[in-house]
C-alpha cells in the first residue's frame, strides 16, 4: 500500500466540507427561491445600497492593507536585523493577543477611542486636539489594521529571514549603497512574503462584518454586514449567496495573485 493513501481521510473530508459547501453557494446564488436558474442575486450587487457597501468595503480594506504594509515592512526588517526572532518568540508575541477574545479586543478600542476615553484624556493632558473617530470609517480602518497586522508581519518576516546575508554583502562589496541594496536586492527577494501578506490582510478586511459592527456604530454597512444580514435576519439565502459569489471573485483574484508571485509558498505564516 502506498503512503499516498494516508491522505485519503483528509481528502474525503475536504471534498465533503470544503468543495461541496462552496458548490452549495454557487447553487443558491444562481437560483431563486423556487430553484429556477437566475442571475438576479448576483446582479443585485449593482443596486445602489449594495454597490455602496461594496465600494466602501473595497476602499477601507485597501486603506488598511496599505497601512499594514507600511507598518509591517520596517517592523519585519527591524526584527530580522536584530535577530529578535530567534525561535518562535516573535510569532509568539504576535499570536499571544489572539488568546484575548477577538471581539473583546476590538471592543476595547471603543473604550480607548471614546470622547472621554483613554486616548483623548492623554491627548487633552498634552494639550493636543481630541481624536474623534469612534463610529466613523477611520475607526473601522484602525480596527482592521489592529486585527490583521500580524498577518502582514509574519509572512514578510519569514521571507526576510531566509535571505542569504552573503547576497546583501556581495551587493555592498560591489558598491551598492543602502538604498540601492534595499530596492535591488531585499525588496525583490521579499515579494512572495509581501504578496502573501497583502492577501492575508485584504481578504478578511474586505469581508468583515464584525469590525464594522463594533467600531462603526450601526450606521456603516460593509458588504460583509449586508451578506450577514441576509442570512441571519433577512433569511434570503439566495441573495446572500449571490452577493457572496461577487465577494468570491475578489478572493479568487487575490488567490491568483499569490499563486503568481509565491509559487513555492515561501511567504507563509510559518
Amino acid at each position: 500500500m502506498s503512503k499516498k493513501w494516508f491522505a485519503a481521510p483528509y481528502l474525503l473530508w475536504s471534498v465533503g466540507f470544503i468543495i461541496i459547501p462552496l458548490l452549495m453557494i454557487f447553487f443558491y446564488g444562481l437560483t431563486d427561491r423556487s430553484g429556477a436558474f437566475t442571475l438576479e442575486n448576483v446582479v443585485a450587487i449593482l443596486s445602489p445600497e449594495h454597490s455602496k457597501a461594496l465600494v466602501l468595503s473595497l476602499l477601507l480594506s485597501l486603506a488598511s492593507t496599505v497601512i499594514c504594509l507600511l507598518l509591517a515592512y520596517p517592523l519585519a526588517m527591524i526584527l530580522n536585523k536584530h535577530h529578535l526572532g530567534r525561535g518562535s518568540f516573535i510569532v509568539f508575541l504576535f499570536i499571544l493577543p489572539m488568546w484575548m477574545n477577538f471581539l473583546l479586543r476590538t471592543l476595547a478600542w471603543q473604550t480607548l477611542l471614546e470622547k472621554t476615553g483613554v486616548i483623548n484624556s492623554v491627548l487633552s493632558a498634552l494639550h493636543l486636539p481630541a481624536l474623534d473617530i469612534i463610529n466613523t470609517p477611520y475607526a473601522i480602518v484602525l480596527g482592521m489594521v489592529y486585527n490583521f497586522l500580524p498577518f502582514m508581519v509574519l509572512p514578510i518576516y519569514n521571507v526576510l529571514v531566509k535571505i542569504d546575508e552573503n547576497v546583501i554583502n556581495a551587493a555592498r562589496d560591489l558598491g551598492a549603497n543602502g538604498v540601492q541594496t534595499f530596492f535591488k536586492i531585499i525588496l525583490p527577494l521579499s515579494i512572495p512574503g509581501v504578496v502573501s501578506g497583502i492577501t492575508m490582510v485584504f481578504v478578511p478586511a474586505m469581508t468583515t462584518f464584525v469590525i464594522s459592527t463594533l467600531l462603526g456604530g450601526s450606521k456603516i454597512l460593509l458588504i460583509g454586514n449586508v451578506i450577514e444580514q441576509e442570512f441571519t435576519q433577512g433569511n434570503n439565502w439566495n441573495l446572500g449567496s449571490g452577493l457572496s459569489l461577487v465577494l468570491m471573485v475578489f478572493i479568487l483574484v487575490s488567490m491568483a495573485f499569490v499563486m503568481k508571485y509565491d509559487r513555492e509558498g515561501e511567504g507563509g505564516m510559518f
Binding site: L11, M24, V203, P204, F209, I227, F231, L247, S254, M255
Partner: peptide
Amino acid sequence: CMSVTNIPMLNADIVTGISMMLLFIA
C-alpha cells in the same frame, strides 16, 4: 491537494461560514 488545503486559509471566514451553513441545512 495543496490548492484545496489553501482554500479555507485564503477564503473569507464569512464565505466558509455560510457555505457550511448551507451544507448543514441541505
